[in-house]
Write a protein that binds this DNA or RNA. Structure first.
Lengths: 187, 187, 187, 187
DNA sequence: TATGAATGAGCATTCATTCAT
DNA sequence: AATGAATGAATGCTCATTCAT
């Protein structure tokens, strides 16, 4: 049955996503994942050669969830300045919805300083995707700030990561609001 | 003998500091600490009731190291604008010296989302200390940006954490340089 | 298609033979066999009800390989004394060719003390075949040693197994050479 | 209490010895050992860094048991020829007492073709000890066989290992008896 | 005949912590 | 103040086997 077939793998990723994001990667054991996913341990290892590979799938999934949410948020908005601000507002909502769990990518890197190649690749890929988004939007702006386009985008990116991280620290969206205040000065 | 007593405790904290910061808290086992510190496991538990308490000592030690470094960096500088920029330059140096290991506080929170009271307290204490530093310096500025003093300090703080974190991600100080570029526009 | 059918089975046995002999039976997993054989796990279990049955096929294959090699070695030799010595020389060559992996039968028994009936049967069958070879050759000898024919054959058989085993231990054919020296005294 | 302290380690080695020898190294799990020894798993790993190290202790123990038995067997015998024969008779008794489990060293090598350095060292050490025993005794003989002393010792050694191994295969001491028959011709 | 997917039981090893001395 | 020894629980992962198709 195709339904069942899809379900086991999907169930594993969904559970891993939930637990890794809520508890952290290292504090979440394979045991807990398979238990809560309701599958056999060997089934997990059939689909994912190692916990690390499951982590990559988790990170990918997080990126997709965020992308989908952002896309929906931006629908109908054309003004680049508005888009950038909406991106931060979207972040705010995302953080509230996800119990202030911060950025999955940044957290993985914080957890695993000597991170594996697979995970590092996936993380950099995502971060660069975010940076590209800001660069594209800034390019569309009439940039009168005297800062170069790329520099401005990078600064916005710093505010994005900084506020995401601080919102986890304080379990509050105030840092994101502060970042938006900065945006209103910068762009 | 007080000398010996101090030495063992000190040896434990120094080793824990090194390993927690380099490898991450969860990836560093008590075994490795006592082995590399050259002390008995039970000695560690004599001085620290739990790994968590050792973690608090580690965080405190990190804060002290950073403070000392910053103080030295700021010696002779009176201009608040200069002080803030120097703080970021100090960060840059700190990150290079410490193999781009980022901020110990942020990393602990990234690792342990449901963090313990002790650790949480210690982390917030440190973060608030950093924020206070920026607030004080901004107060001394002739702030003509149209943003309130506290808001401006908070934005600088966002750039501080954002650039610290991104420098760990990219293993490069470019993000700190970008933050300094932002400072030069904002203050 | 019969061709395909034979090929898959053959591929499985060939791979199992190679791995069991090189790595040992217990250290070789079904996973590795099917991977290196390039077949599905369920295909293996279609042809062999269990790992044990695959082991029996492996042992049989080893016996056939040895027999074929010995037969070629003995071609043209009629003198029974010469035949026995050639058998040891053949062993020497076999061990070198097979990276000093010893006797598959003896190793299986060393690995599985409470061996299964199937495997035991197959092993004893082979060992008795080897003993019979020596008995037949000794019968053809003008035995003037004062030892009975069967006893003499059994002693030669001891030298055969002893030297095969020791050559694995030392990864050297010296033990086989020593056995041949003994033969030259005994027969 | 010294008694308790000694007991745990001793209990572990004794159990490992019994199980490794009876069931084989690879077929005996750490779980079974700690269960039957009545100790915690972590206690085993406190005393032995790995299963491999436990294996080395097992091999050493086997050697000591055999040595002690042989020594007792040889007490009062001075004639070297008699000593060699008694060594085989001792083997016969040893095999019966130990349920025809063969030679622990040879079996370990049969199980682990790519054996570890530690285990290999220990195994070779033991085998060379056995060979030395035969060499020493043969030197004391009035050797009139026309074979060199070392060659003769090596041949006896082949008979020793061959008969030990075959007695495991057949679960019978007949092979050892055959070896003794050979001795009576050779020396 | 062949296979992709699933499984329960087991693997060797490490975890943070505690106890007796 | 310091330690060697002991522990229960959990770690990530692999085992031989089976099922549905």
């Amino acid at each position: 049955m195709i339904i069942t077939e899809t379900t086991v793998r999907e169930q594993i990723v969904a559970t891993a996503d939930r637990l890794f994001y809520a508890q952290g990667y290292n504090l979440t054991g394979i045991n807990q994942i398979v238990e809560e996913a309701g599958v056999a341990k060997a089934s997990l290892y059939y689909h994912f050669p190692s916990k690390e590979d499951l982590c990559v799938a988790y990170l990918q999934r997080r990126a997709e969830k965020w992308s989908a949410k952002l896309q929906k948020f931006l629908t109908g908005t054309n003004d680049p300045r508005e888009c950038i601000i909406k991106c931060f507002e979207c972040r705010s909502e995302y953080l509230i919805e996800n119990n202030y769990s911060g950025c999955s990518y940044i957290r993985i890197i914080a957890e695993m300083p000597q991170r594996s190649k697979k995970i590092n690749q996936r993380a950099i890929l995502n971060k660069e995707g975010q940076r590209r988004f800001f660069i594209e939007k800034v390019k569309e702006l009439k940039n009168t700030s005297g800062i170069s386009t790329v520099d401005l985008a990078n600064i916005i990116f710093l505010l994005f990561d900084g506020s995401t991280m601080q919102s986890q620290v304080y379990r509050d969206i105030a840092p994101v609001k502060n970042a938006i205040k900065a945006l209103k000065v910068l762009i």
